[in-house]
Design a protein around this nucleic acid. Structure first.
Length: 464
RNA sequence: GACCCCUUCGUCUAUCGGUUAGGACACCAGGUUUUCAUCCUGGAAAGACGGGUUCGAUUCCCGUAGGGGUCGCCA
């Protein structure tokens, strides 16, 4: 082992989603782990912004913000692929010079034609340009050509992927992919390899969808006489229905999770466990996650995103956050507006409700429904029996001056016993008018928080 | 269609030829809380299919099926 240099290289053509950030996390973790032994290991962030039409600044911002939110810190400055285009072009020409590439004048239409023909005949759709390479006249051209890579035909290419294992394919499966377009701009395939080389990347860790590219890029390294880096292709993440992650699975963009009130640490924890057998423990500190990271524990098959599990993890973390921090979060990011005289009450509610909320959005909903509950509206739909019970309870509790937890509980119990009703017959309507929901914290806890005055007042509002 | 990858409870996974196939989430039941939740205890729940190899296969091999990825002068 020696130092490890990795990169996360998203293109800013869409918001960063949860599957993408998993890739970033893995890149980050392997480097963090390696840093303990080799401090000059690095994790770089490179933005692949060569497709100017589709690249947008807001997507770039989303990438940066997402990484920062999850505390996936990269080393050094952010690289932008577009800034290095001249170097890419230079390498393409160099490749031409050393006969690792050739000029091609096939038009898109011609290629499309051949592709169709081959498809009908059941032939390979690769290596559609067959004649240009051997044509001296074409190779002498000064303009109006694109540059394609030369790949030796009858042979095999083998890659020893850190996750996928050894994979061998026939070179017939490889096309003479384009390095430099007719307009002189470099393609992704060229830019990636050149940048990775220049940045000294030792491990290319990325999504499974790039596995096929690895074989092609392999030859670019070879033709240039560069050392081929190690590859690790991570299986893709699917939605809960086993289909490719998309909008219809709900929140899949990283920042959606932030907006819903999932916690950074919980997401990292979930992602670290996702599709891997790293650790038997469910709840992991970042230190443990780093320490335990291992390519071997990443499962080769794609796995599904599971909100149940995320919710479970997130509620554990949520419960650990102190009430003041949560209040600030609710006010700043969840549009919770409260009057100053209610701050103490809200803090107590947060304490009560954070235990039973999966995320901050849910906590917010609970608190808002508590505050905004319209007792008068509920009165319209409540049953006569509920009114009768609450009326009796009002009379029963109105003169009570001992508002301690023990006494409240004793009173609640005695009341139902005296009236010979089930506890839930009192609990549900009472909790409803006190909290705005039939389900929620225990009655005695709420009554203590509300104190006698507010408790009586709410019941009274319902009765009059 | 071609090439490559994958396939254990509903979901995420353990098992590196011999296990009552284990755990976690979710679910269900019981207990605690005369209340929702937590918590505790328990339960149901899996080797895609078919062939080999072997004393023995979830594990190794082959095939079939299913799923996924890739096949651009996009990245």
């Amino acid at each position: 082992m020696s130092k490890i240099i990795t990169r996360f290289a998203p293109s800013p053509t869409g918001y960063l989603h949860i599957g993408g950030i998993r890739t970033a996390l893995i890149n980050h973790l392997i480097v963090e782990k390696n840093k303990t032994e080799f401090p000059d290991s690095k994790f770089f962030l490179r933005i692949e912004d060569t497709d100017k039409k589709r690249s947008k600044d807001e997507y770039f911002q989303s990438i940066v913000k997402s990484l920062k939110w999850l505390n996936i810190q990269w080393d050094g400055n952010i690289y932008k692929q577009s800034e290095n285009i001249n170097k890419h072009i230079e390498i393409a020409n160099e490749l031409l010079r050393i006969k690792g590439a050739y000029k091609c004048i096939c038009t898109t239409e011609e290629l499309e034609e051949r592709r169709k023909k081959n498809l009908l005949k059941g032939l390979s759709l690769k290596k559609l340009c067959n004649n240009c390479e051997g044509d001296p006249n074409i190779q002498k051209l000064e303009k109006d050509f694109c540059i394609r890579i030369k790949i030796e035909k009858s042979n095999f290419t083998e890659i020893d992927d850190k996750i996928q294992g050894k994979i061998k394919i026939s070179n017939d499966e490889l096309d003479n992919f384009i390095l430099l377009r007719k307009d002189g701009t470099p393609t992704y395939m060229l830019s990636v390899v050149v940048d990775d080389y220049l940045m000294g990347i030792t491990h290319i860790i990325r999504g499974d969808d790039h596995l096929n590219n690895a074989f092609r890029q392999f030859h670019l390294y070879k033709n240039l006489g560069w050392i081929v880096p190690k590859f690790a292709h991570i299986p893709l993440m699917f939605g809960d229905d086993g289909k490719k992650l998309s909008k219809r699975h709900g929140s899949i963009e990283v920042l959606d999770f932030k907006n819903k009130g999932y916690l950074s640490e919980a997401i990292v924890n979930y992602l670290a466990k996702f599709g891997s057998s790293n650790d038997k423990d469910e709840v992991l500190q970042k230190k443990q996650i780093i320490y335990n990271f291992n390519f071997n524990s990443i499962v080769k098959s794609p796995s599904r995103f599971d909100y149940n599990k995320l919710n479970f993890i997130n509620s554990l973390y949520l419960n650990e956050i102190n009430d003041e921090d949560l209040l600030r979060e609710l006010k700043e990011n969840f549009n919770l507006k409260i009057k100053n005289n209610l701050v103490d009450l809200i803090l107590k509610l947060i304490n009560l409700y954070k235990k039973r909320s999966h995320n901050i959005e849910e906590l917010n909903k609970n608190i808002k429904s508590f505050i905004n509950f319209e007792i008068a509206e509920y009165k319209k739909v409540s049953s006569e029996n509920e009114k009768k019970i609450l009326n009796q309870f009002f009379i029963y509790i109105n003169n009570e001056n001992d508002w301690s937890k023990d006494k409240i509980e004793k009173n609640l119990k005695e009341f139902v016993n005296q009236n010979n009703i089930k506890f839930s017959h009192l609990a549900e309507p009472l909790r409803m008018i006190l909290t705005g929901s039939k389900k929620g914290p225990s009655l005695s806890e709420i009554m203590i928080i509300l104190e006698k005055k507010e408790t009586i007042s709410k019941i009274n509002k319902f009765l009059i």
